[in-house]
Design a protein around this nucleic acid. Structure first.
Lengths: 226, 226
DNA sequence: AGAGATAACGTACGCTGTACACATGAAGCC
DNA sequence: GGCTTCATGTGTACAGCGTACGTTATCTCT
């Protein structure tokens, strides 16, 4: 196999077939990194794994990203770049709800990215773009300055925190969460046991919409115009 | 130095003075782990570092915790065990606010624990205890079942997400966030620039209280009793 | 005192990110 | 065309990680 280097003069071919010059670009590396993250999980996103996906060597990536952290930053920024910045209706509160749902969908569609996005400051340009969109919607409702920043922060925080539930969920776990809760000592956790079935779908869309409704109700109640 | 083993027969003392039999307990190991985490940060919490803090060896810890993950789980559960479960007033909504603030304070007082708590499912007993307390308060307001679980989840999610802001904040960063935002292209991010100063204290207590107010307003609006 | 159990420990292995030296291929210059 | 120069791909190596495995020392029970 691989008789492409039949150089009999050198007994041990110390290097494999080298890839052509422009075959490694930041974009291609980020694509490979995402491929690894989606298929193997973020914890398996190692430099060597990305290089293997590109059929390259680990150190080759360091010509384009000084550290692994910078590569991850670029990867996360491309994910944030997929946010859909549409404000379709003419009701600003409804648009705010759509904004929140879109952001949440962005996270649920990239579950491996939630934890690193959570830990990283990552103030990339696309993150700013998302914030600008939220501020635009809020301004239409007369909410500006600290109230706007706080509201925006609240929605983002809610979404990130909520993603912790949905991402960590292991539906193949045995025993199921409701049955595990039902086995608790009834004298210590009576309420937990009584809502065990509802606890079964904690983090669900229905629960999320309920909470988002609550938050938006409060936002609306402090908006200048009725 | 250390002439305690002047055993001249063995030229190289292959082992240092071994510690007595009961000197290593799960509790002491967890204490040492927290010491490392608080002083050096969670990323520096290695098995060898914990062992060094105990003046022991790395493998000695594995007699008490099968894996590092289990040690971390125990550490996180002790942190959750410090939650103060008081419901001081007779206004359930006010108690819910105090509950949320207490939980948030728990996170801010253990900043290193936020990220691992976020990533881990970690359904320890103390986590259930916190949930039971929230359900008790909500039940006093007539909120049960799915509405209660959703509301509880919302508060917890908000706190975790919010902690991402406050934990990641690097106030010694240069340039400051407002000045960095002010340098953005004004035609693309006009609103972000206009709220740059408010953005400076994003994640602050004032902003958090504002968001919590919004959420509680919504909760109150759906509560059975006025 | 002797034996058995077990807690503490040392060594070693495969993995990680990455510093460093080297090899190679494309581009500019004569 | 030949030669130089420089950017880029690659291999080797190292410190540090979690931890499997085998050794020892100490405690307990006769």
């Amino acid at each position: 196999m691989k008789p492409s280097t039949p150089q009999t003069t050198s007994p041990a071919p110390r290097q494999r077939q080298r890839r052509p010059r422009g075959s490694l670009t930041p974009d291609r590396i980020v694509e490979a990194a995402e491929r690894v993250a989606t298929t193997e999980g973020f914890e398996a996103l190692t430099v060597r794994a990305v290089a293997a996906d590109l059929e390259s060597s680990a150190m080759a990536l360091y010509r384009h990203f000084a550290t692994k952290e910078l590569l991850v930053d670029a990867l996360l920024d491309t994910v944030l770049g997929r946010f859909d910045c549409a404000s379709p209706t003419d009701d600003w509160l409804e648009d705010l709800r759509i904004f929140a749902r879109s952001h949440r969908r962005l996270l649920t569609m990239h579950p491996w990215a939630v934890a690193p996005l959570f830990s990283h400051p990552s103030p990339g340009l696309n993150a700013v773009r998302i914030g600008e969109e939220a501020l635009r919607i809020l301004a239409r409702g007369g909410i500006t300055d600290d109230a706007a920043v706080a509201t925006f922060s609240g929605i983002i925080a809610l979404n990130y925190g909520w993603s912790a539930f949905t991402v960590a969920r292991d539906d193949s776990a045995e025993p199921t969460l409701p049955t595990a809760l039902a086995a608790l000592p009834a004298d210590q956790f009576p309420l937990t046991i009584s809502v065990a079935t509802s606890m079964g779908n904690y983090g669900s869309d229905a629960h999320y919409n309920l909470v988002l409704n609550h938050l938006l109700t409060g936002v609306k109640s402090t908006a200048p115009e009725p």
